[in-house]
Design a protein around this nucleic acid. Structure first.
Lengths: 200, 200
DNA sequence: CGACTTCTTGAACGTCGAGTCAAGAAGTCG
DNA sequence: CGACTTCTTGACTCGACGTTCAAGAAGTCG
């Protein structure tokens, strides 16, 4: 039996979620421990005790981000017809409704941001984003394969190629959006992408 | 008349190019002044004298990057047929042959990396990347408009929408590639994108 | 040559941020 | 209660980094 000591005074899961929001909106390097201390209302030592060092903390937040996103993705793409769902996925880049609370909406996809900031210098970060990309394409590939057999999606390309292309589009849209989103232009581009998938 | 003093002992342009390579491969935050001093063989004071502070230095490198890239882009897309040229542009994400010397090939597009790392926190960086994205879509739009009139490219979407989508694909591919490039998967995705532009 | 300007060098400075730690607080268990 | 464990607090350390600066070097001009 592990001897129990003084109980933690803060909610570890909730704190990780709030940290995720901060990391998401500011990036890894630009978020200092002091920022976290201020925003989370948890003292430095407690953070270190609960989450290890900054890099661990960040990587755990990234993992949480992906878990939530993957759940969204899977649920959204498990519907028919597929194309409207895909449009939804592309249209709201990296949207995680469950996590976004009252703070301003963070911008960009945290996986993509991590790729730009820590990859390829950090091997664990590289693993995480590589796995995430892989899972995205796997999930999308399966959905597209089904939609090809029902005749909804064109078979002029393999589901794998289509899924990979969708990954690029999501990540590109998500990244470019950070610099300011021209909603009309983005929407028409997404529609063009979706239409090119439609069987004719 | 400006009095001339002691002449600079290093080539400012060449030094900026070398700094660009370093910034490109490591990112802004992860590149220290000391790194630059070591790699460029120019002392700190001289760097500050010639380029101002680190942020100026970086932003100037980004501008240089874009200028070179834009020249490539314009030249490549000013040909007929357009689709093979587009494929070339997408296939070699952010390739700048003139600048890549004997160092390892930097990964990702510097504009995209800057977007992830400095935008939206830095207003001048935001300006630069926004303008770059704008110029990319402008150039691509014009090329696509011409290719639509010749019947090479489908008119099932506007040239603007197609160009915007291409921007997303380039940026997405360029970003995801940082985490390790699966050449086959990338190529088939690019081919799918190109084929969806082809008039039928 | 002497006055003037600009560049070079590298030590020094100040700041900031990640991580540590010792003392105390708040629980549990026997 | 007393021993034990874990959490909290915030001051402290220590290193890294961007930036400055003073002294000297290398040119030009009259």
């Amino acid at each position: 039996m592990t001897r129990t000591g003084r109980p933690r005074e803060f909610d570890k899961d909730k704190t990780l979620e709030r940290a995720l929001e901060l990391f998401w909106s500011r990036g890894y390097g630009a978020t200092s421990i002091q920022d976290l201390v201020d925003a989370l209302a948890v003292e430095r030592g407690s953070l270190y005790g609960a989450f290890g060092d900054k890099r661990r903390f960040y990587l755990d937040a990234v993992k949480l981000y992906w878990d939530v996103y993957e759940r969204h993705l899977t649920a959204a793409l498990d519907t028919a017809p597929l194309l409207p769902a895909l449009r939804e996925i592309l249209t709201h880049p990296a949207r995680l409704d469950e996590l976004i609370s009252d703070m301003g909406v963070p911008q960009g996809c945290l996986i993509g941001n991590t790729t730009a900031e820590l990859v390829p210098g950090d091997s664990e970060a590289t693993e995480i984003v590589t796995r995430s990309y892989r899972r995205f394409t796997d999930i999308a590939t399966e959905a597209l394969r089904r939609a090809q057999t029902t005749g909804e999606v064109t078979d002029s390309a393999t589901p794998e190629a289509q899924a990979q292309l969708l990954l690029y589009v999501v990540q590109g849209l998500s990244l470019v959006s950070r610099a300011g989103l021209d909603k009309e232009a983005a929407l028409s581009a997404v529609d063009a992408a979706i239409n090119s998938l439609r069987a004719r």
